[in-house]
Design a protein around this nucleic acid. Structure first.
Length: 434
RNA sequence: GCCCGGGUGGUGUAGUGGCCCAUCAUACGACCCUGUCACGGUCGUGACGCGGGUUCAAAUCCCGCCUCGGGCGCCA
């Protein structure tokens, strides 16, 4: 296929071979048009029945929608054609026929439900919108990596099969590991800390996390992509700075490099990168502000977590991304450091989008004794985490970091209704294939 | 884990006890049409998730199962 030309690049005067899917055949009688679609766009192939060999016309017009065809012919400028050019075919080959009845309509004339789309993801991704989401996703990941590198962070990969859970609390998927009990990791948290404690110092990881919660919502997955950062000699303020930079970099890259995709998603008009710095509200201030909105039936008091409706109300009030800082120590995990001058207050922070939580982070407890106390307070057995706590004996620097839900970033960025749209093959409560 | 709402041709839908051997769109098949742009026109094929029950009568009401979606909790 060396001499294949993309639909969007076929120039008048050239002799080309274009290959792609039959998007539509419009047969007007004496003249007919086959719209061929590939990754770059569409191009029209013209069949003038009188002037062309019967078998050529038969092959071309007999191809069903979504069949894969290869067309060789001359490209001609034609202002009546949708893209200003059309191919006059000399030969047409059907490389792969498609069944006549499709499980969903890639031309988008008839909507399909999300579950139908996910069952037929290949066809779904032939829709311009589906293609656009994952092209944007690729750009986000590229931009995020570049932003981390600009902050001197090294990309790492940590195990997804582990002996113990990270934080307790959340449900883990159990597996059998050569006859021993093991789990799919819910977070790279402890591992990235162990690497931040080395000379590598600043690390990031983009990888899967697994959570066995049986929730059924448009914003949860059982396998998600976590974008994690951890930096030695960072405090929670530094971590928030990096977080902000990474999120903004993702938006800016999409604004700059994904115009066509935003167009396909009908977002081109309103798409705007968020303006740093994001407001940083303390938990206490956030509670007061939320209570003042009057959105909740019951006023929140110190120590409460924000209910879903509260997150949304506060999001509407703030109107953009914002951090919530200085959470009560009791509702943050053991590895988050508390303020020295107020042990009830933690350095934990969340980054919120008006629709939902995106990031959770904080400065970590690097003092071994305090860390072990924390384990005990949370009802975890420190012995199970010796591989982790032992390393705190040998010079663990102060460090901080965070984890960002990759799909949530994409979902909020592209205003997707359901997080499953942001994953090629989502894993949820009921979906295990494809 | 608790709670709520759905499942009708390939796809998306209308249909709250008889007006339904089920509506519309799209797809599919046949025919007509030489500039379509979601081409148009005529005709045609094609469906009530599964099982049980109520009733003279069930797509419609009830029960169970399967399945999908959503809300809360929790979280990324």
């Amino acid at each position: 296929m060396d001499d294949r030309t993309y639909a969007a690049e076929a120039a008048p005067g050239e002799e080309v071979t274009v290959a792609g899917w039959v998007h539509e055949v419009r047969d007007l009688g004496g003249i007919a048009f086959l719209i061929l679609r590939d990754t770059s766009g569409r191009i029209q192939v013209k069949f003038e029945k009188e002037a062309m060999a019967d078998d050529l016309v038969e092959t071309g017009l007999g191809a069903h929608r979504e069949s894969v065809v290869s067309v060789t012919g001359a490209v001609e400028a034609e202002e009546r054609a949708p893209t200003g050019v059309e191919v006059v075919p000399e030969s047409v080959e059907v490389l792969a026929p498609a069944d006549t009845e499709l499980p969903l309509d890639p031309s988008g004339k008839v909507e399909a439900e999300l579950s139908t789309r996910l069952d037929n993801r290949t066809l779904d991704l032939r829709r311009a919108e589906g293609q656009a989401v994952f092209e944007v996703r690729g750009e986000v990941l590229r931009a995020v990596r570049a932003a981390f590198r600009a902050h001197d962070a090294t990309e790492i990969n940590t195990p997804k099969i582990v002996a113990t859970g990270t934080e307790g609390g959340t449900e883990l998927f159990p597996i059998t590991y050569f006859g021993r009990e093991a789990f799919m990791n819910q977070s790279p948290q402890l591992f990235k800390q162990l690497v931040a404690g080395s000379n590598v110092e600043r690390v990031f990881e983009i990888g899967p996390i697994f959570r066995a919660e049986e929730h059924n919502t448009p914003r949860h997955l059982n396998e998600a992509t976590s974008i994690d950062f951890e930096g030695a000699f960072c405090d929670h303020h530094d971590a928030m700075d990096v977080c902000e930079a990474v999120v903004v970099a993702a938006y800016e890259a999409v604004a700059e490099n994904c115009r066509d995709q935003l167009e396909a998603l009908d977002l081109a008009e309103e798409f705007e990168p968020p303006e740093p710095p994001f407001p940083r509200l303390t938990y206490e201030a956030a509670i007061e502000r939320l209570n003042a909105t009057g959105a909740l039936d019951e006023q929140l008091v110190w120590g409460d977590d924000f209910p879903t409706e509260g997150e949304r109300a506060l999001g509407r009030d703030v109107g953009g991304h914002y951090f919530v800082t200085d959470w009560p120590a009791e509702i943050k995990p053991f590895y988050i450091m508390d303020h020295d001058d107020d042990p009830d207050l933690s350095t934990g922070f969340d980054l919120m989008h008006p629709r939902m939580e995106l990031v959770s982070g904080g400065q970590r407890e690097h003092r071994r004794e305090k860390l072990i106390e924390g384990f005990e307070r949370q009802g975890l057995e420190p012995e199970a985490f010796e591989y982790y706590t032992e390393m705190f004996r040998y010079g663990m620097p102060p460090h901080a970091g965070w984890g960002l839900g990759g799909e949530r970033l994409l979902m909020t960025m592209l205003e997707l209704d359901n997080i499953r749209e942001a994953v090629l093959f989502p894993r949820d409560r009921q979906r295990l294939s494809p």
